Measured scan of single mutants.
Amino acid sequence: MPVRRGHVAPQNTFLDTIIRKFEGQSRKFIIANARVENCAVIYCNDGFCELCGYSRAEVMQRPCTCDFLHGPRTQRRAAAQIAQALLGAEERKVEIAFYRKDGSCFLCLVDVVPVKNEDGAVIMFILNFEVVMEKDMVGSPAHDTNHRGPPTSWLAPGRAKTFRLKLPALLALTARESSVRSGGAGGAGAPGAVVVDVDLTPAAPSSESLALDEVTAMDNHVAGLGPAEERRALVGPGSPPRSAPGQLPSPRAHSLNPDASGSSCSLARTRSRESCASVRRASSADDIEAMRAGVLPPPPRHASTGAMHPLRSGLLNSTSDSDLVRYRTISKIPQITLNFVDLKGDPFLASPTSDREIIAPKIKERTHNVTEKVTQVLSLGADVLPEYKLQAPRIHRWTILHYSPFKAVWDWLILLLVIYTAVFTPYSAAFLLKETEEGPPATECGYACQPLAVVDLIVDIMFIVDILINFRTTYVNANEEVVSHPGRIAVHYFKGWFLIDMVAAIPFDLLI
């Protein structure tokens, strides 16, 4: 008679799926529990143990900040960024110097990925580790590398530091407007667009060049630039800015003055950032001319202004700041037409079709709590990747769950009947059967004279019903998954307890 339990259901295979997918890609990662103190490590794979030199037993239950890997060259700011990422709910990448158990130093890129439950609360953290440099290539500990984003994938490793954006290309926007319009339909740009040429040739750093990471940081200074100062900065030398009595002219307006920039070969870094931020506020060169004239017309309804409409929906549905990093990277690809469009465009503009998908598509409701890094690593669709929660398995109709209350009560009843059979069957065979043979035949009273025979008949009927119930009862397979398919249940029961239950259900007393 089957006594099969499996009270692990309803099970959740999400954690096993993450481990299996990460292991298949030869990654070095740990999984931490966000619900406990210090976000203790609950799993670390073999790749991480080989990377740091510690065994799994030495890593388990330690804080996922990996303070046991810190050393003299470990930056405090990087460690603080990892700790801050564990307090938030967004994906974050941090470069930090770690030390192995043998004392060797290596520069590592740590990717902190939160995993949320159905309520939107962070319950786990996945920390992925990628070695960037070994100890002989690690720089000085005073050099802070965590304020910069990861290198873009479309640049060669040897040319990542030679990417320079020439400031004269930004200063000569109005001069290039006529050349853009003359391109017409034969050019790649839309009317009114501004073409910015980027020099990728390796050259020595000069005062006129600005690194790509500095251009990325310009967006942080746009908020500090007032509207009046932006307007004066875009007017140009024809209309000098008016300053109040006793007030000095704005240095932001002076930063885009061609006369002032041409007199000296070098520009201050602050002026460069502010000038680029001011130019980015204009949607095209037409807006710059309109600002000089004193009238700013409404933005025209053409394809170039609607190019950012799908980007707005993608940004609203993005799951991490990696989408913004990807957008900034692609927006700086050289030799393309940049349409400086305000994100607050007309909502009635139709979304044009684009061959290049900048932001990841909208994630469906079932995966809105899973970050983009987890979705990318697992390579699963929205119909396959579940949320991290207890999910009731989908069972067929008329199927009994093996952990249901009805099955528990039924098993206790069958257990009592088995005990009765084990006690009274030998007793009936030894004593009652002998008395029946010696006594007179009682054929007239039937079952009324033999109450134990009636009980034995009921017990046999219950055993037959138990066999039928076992054909529709779920079970737990070797992978700790609840199986509810009727065919698989029948095959599993035939290979197991079916023969024993059938022999126990045969009414031998009635056959004798």
Rank of each mutant, 00 (worst) to 15 (best):
P10Q: 05
N12W: 10
T17F: 11
I19V: 08
I19R: 01
R20D: 06
F22H: 13
E23Y: 01
E23L: 01
G24D: 13
Q25F: 06
R35Q: 14
C39T: 06
D46W: 04
L51P: 01
S55T: 07
S55V: 01
M60Q: 03
C66N: 01
P72W: 01
T74K: 01
A80Y: 06
A89N: 14
E91C: 13
I96H: 01
F98W: 03
Y99P: 01
K101M: 01
C105L: 10
F106K: 01
L109R: 09
V110Q: 01
V112G: 01
V122N: 06
F129S: 01
F129M: 05
V132H: 06
E134R: 14
K135T: 05
T145F: 04
T145R: 12
T145D: 15
N146F: 15
P151C: 11
T152K: 06
W154A: 14
L165W: 11
P168K: 03
P168R: 08
A169G: 15
A175W: 03
A175F: 01
G192P: 05
D197M: 01
D199N: 05
P202H: 05
A204T: 15
S206H: 15
S207M: 11
E208P: 15
L210N: 06
N220H: 06
H221D: 05
A223S: 07
G224K: 14
G226H: 13
A228M: 06
G236P: 07
G236L: 07
P241V: 14
R242M: 11
S243G: 13
L248S: 11
S255T: 09
A260M: 07
S261Q: 06
S266E: 14
L267A: 08
R269Q: 04
E274K: 04
R280E: 10
R281C: 10
E289Q: 06
R292L: 11
P297H: 15
P299Q: 14
R301Q: 07
M308Q: 11
P310Y: 13
R312V: 11
L316T: 09
D323C: 05
R326L: 05
R326C: 05
Y327G: 14
R328V: 05
I330W: 05
Q335F: 04
S354G: 14
S354Q: 14
E357C: 14
I358H: 11
P361Q: 12
N369F: 12
N369Q: 11
Q376P: 03
V377P: 04
L380C: 07
